[in-house]
Write a protein that binds this DNA or RNA. Sequence first.
DNA 1: CCCATTTGCTTGACCAAGCAACAACCGGCT
DNA 2: AGCCGGTTGTTGCTTGGTCAAGCAAATGGG
Lengths: 154, 154
Amino acid sequence: MAGPPAERPLPLNPDEEALVRALGQVMHVLPRTIDGDMIADRQLPLTEYTALMNLSEAPDRRMRMHELASLCHLSLSGMTRTIIRLETQGLVKRERCEEDARGWNAVLTDAGFARLEESWPSHLAAVRRRFLQHFDGFDLAQLARAFRSAGTTD
Amino acid sequence: MAGPPAERPLPLNPDEEALVRALGQVMHVLPRTIDGDMIADRQLPLTEYTALMNLSEAPDRRMRMHELASLCHLSLSGMTRTIIRLETQGLVKRERCEEDARGWNAVLTDAGFARLEESWPSHLAAVRRRFLQHFDGFDLAQLARAFRSAGTTD
DNA sequence: CCCATTTGCTTGACCAAGCAACAACCGGCT
DNA sequence: AGCCGGTTGTTGCTTGGTCAAGCAAATGGG
C-alpha cells in the first residue's frame, strides 16, 4: 500500500466517480434509515434486532460471543455491550459454555424470541423498501458475489 | 412504515438474502479498510481527507459548514468536530461568513492543499483496490444510478 | 504435574460520529 | 420597532470502534 509520496495516477472516470459517490451515500444513509424505521415501528434498534435474529437462527438459539459478533458485524466489545443491553431487557441471557468454561453463550430467551417474531416483518419491509426495491432489473446473485469479494478482507 | 403487529410477508429469496448480507459486510468493512490504508500510508484519516478534498474543489477553496457536511456524508456536528481537528493541524481555517453572520466558512489553507496533494494518490489507489476492482465486468453507470436512488431519502 | 503461554471474554480509556437540545442570528410581518 | 418561525452552528449524551489490561480457563513443554 505504501509508495513514494506523489505519483500521478489516472483519476477515476466519470462512471467510477459516480459509483463511488453513490456508494458513499448509501453506506451513510441506509443503516440509519433502516434503524430509524425499526425504532419508529418497533422500538428495536437495528443492532439489537440483528443480534436477536442471528441468535434465533443458531442451533439451540445460542451462540458464542465471538461468532455472534462476527455475524453482526460488531467488534467483540461492541457485542458484549449490546448483549448487556439485551440482557437487561430480558431478551437474552448469558450462560457459561460447557465445553470451554472460558467461553460464554448468548442465549435467546422466550421473551427475546417473541420480540423478534413481532419485529421481523418490519425489518423485512424496511430492507425491501430502502434497498432491494432499487435493484429490480439486476442480477442479484452476480451483485452479491461482487460485494462479497469486496467485503472479504482482501 | 407502521402497520399491524405481525404480518407474515414472504421472506427474502436466497439471492436477495445473499445480497443484503454482502452489502452489510461491505458497509462495515470498506470504510474501515480504506481509512486504515490512508492512515498507514499518509497518516490522514479518510474523514479528514474527504473534507480537504471537497474544500479543494469549492470556489475559492471555501465552503459553508452545512454544505461541506452534506458532501462529506457527515452530520453537521460531526463536521464541526472534523473541522476543529483540521484547524488545530493548520490545514483549514474558519472565517465568519460575510453575507450571513450566523455562518462560517471552512477555508483550505496552503498547508491543507499541500497535504491533499500528497495524499490523493493513496486514496485513489485504495478506492480502486478495495472497491472498484471487484466490479470489473459491471455497467458502472447503471449501478451508480441504482445506488443513487437507494441513497436519496425516499 | 507445574508453570508459562495462549485463548475467550470483559472492562476501561479514549476517540469519532449521530441525534437532540440549544444559542445566535436572519428575515418577514405586524 | 419588535416578535416569531426558520436557519446555522455548537454542545451534551449515547453508541460503537480500537486498544490495552485483566482474569479465568485451557494447553503444552519440561
